[in-house]
């Protein structure tokens, strides 16, 4: 008797490899338990507050100031990182120099160093009496306890995102396109501006966006150096913590919701841009 004249249509392509049900089921269950259900409470709580209450706390004067500070410093830091991250990536990919491997490893330090440690270290450096601060203070430049200090901390946190995004693309680009440009008579500056830069721009943008997204939500490395003065150096994540400490769960939820929506918007734009790029490059 023929065992299988027609196979039932299934929602996934059939495979000889075993374990799909087990691994997929476990992944989905774990994802729901740890990520999706907890995150959905944020939406639930926001929805339960009512629109007016949400706007009142989520867009209060104090909250708006905190958003401005968080987004402003995150953008500034991401710009600094875009410039210097590109420089570091360029130097690491293109040039040979002693200690390159150590330097390359060091770039990941912000990924590995706990943020609180970075926070107190930067504060020790940039406080008016600190190693660096003592030279800046007489010049009237205050870093710690000002938005500049926050930016410094976010530069520290965001640097590896830019370097690690740009590096593989730059390495992949190969010297041949530059040599091709040179044989066609382009100057070095023209080659960089018209051949290399456009090729790495998407990766640079990815790095920028990742550094920015990380910077907006960053807490540990910032709270020590920022001074936490409401209305001046109070970042949005700190405002959430303050609300929580005052048992104002609605306030914390509304601010968190606003921040998360902005983060998702950034993430979504990023994915969209990347898929456009992939389609154009035919990869």
């Amino acid at each position: 008797m023929p065992s299988m004249t027609t196979r039932k249509a299934r929602w996934r392509a059939p495979s000889v490899l075993p374990g799909f049900g087990l691994t997929f089921g476990f992944s989905l269950a774990w994802l729901s338990l740890i990520v999706l259900i907890p995150l959905s409470t944020l939406f639930l709580k926001s929805a339960g507050m009512g629109w007016q209450a949400f706007v009142d706390v989520g867009f209060s004067e104090r909250a708006l100031t905190a958003y401005r500070l968080s987004f402003g410093t995150a953008i500034a830091a991401a710009f600094v990182n875009a410039v210097f991250g590109l420089l570091v990536a360029w130097v690491l990919v293109r040039y040979e120099f002693p200690g390159k491997r150590v330097i390359s490893a060091l770039v990941d330090l912000p990924f590995a160093l706990p943020t609180a440690v970075a926070g107190i270290a930067l504060t020790a450096l940039y406080a008016p009496s600190g190693w660096v601060g003592q030279y800046l203070d007489p010049l009237g430049i205050k870093v710690a306890f000002t938005p500049i200090g926050i930016t410094v901390a976010l530069v520290f946190i965001g640097l590896p995102f830019v370097v690690r995004s740009v590096e593989p693309v730059l390495a992949d680009l190969g010297k041949d396109v530059e040599e091709a440009a040179a044989t066609l008579g382009a100057s070095r500056a023209q080659t960089f501006a018209r051949v290399i830069f456009p090729a790495i721009l998407p990766a640079l943008f990815t790095g920028f966006a990742l550094a920015f997204a990380r910077g907006v939500g960053e807490y540990g490395s910032v709270i020590f150096i920022s001074g936490n003065m409401p209305g001046r150096t109070e970042i949005a994540p700190l405002l959430i913590v303050t609300q929580l400490e005052q048992y104002n769960y609605n306030g914390a939820t509304a601010i968190a919701m606003v921040m998360m929506l902005v983060s998702f918007a950034v993430l979504f734009t990023l994915n969209a841009l990347q898929s456009i790029r992939r389609r154009r490059l035919g990869a």
Binding site: P2, S3, M4, T5, T6, R7, P14, V16
Partner: peptide
């Protein structure tokens, strides 16, 4: 070989 499954046939 049995690495892929047919929709119809034996």
């Amino acid at each position: 070989a049995g690495l892929e499954f047919q929709d119809e046939g034996q």
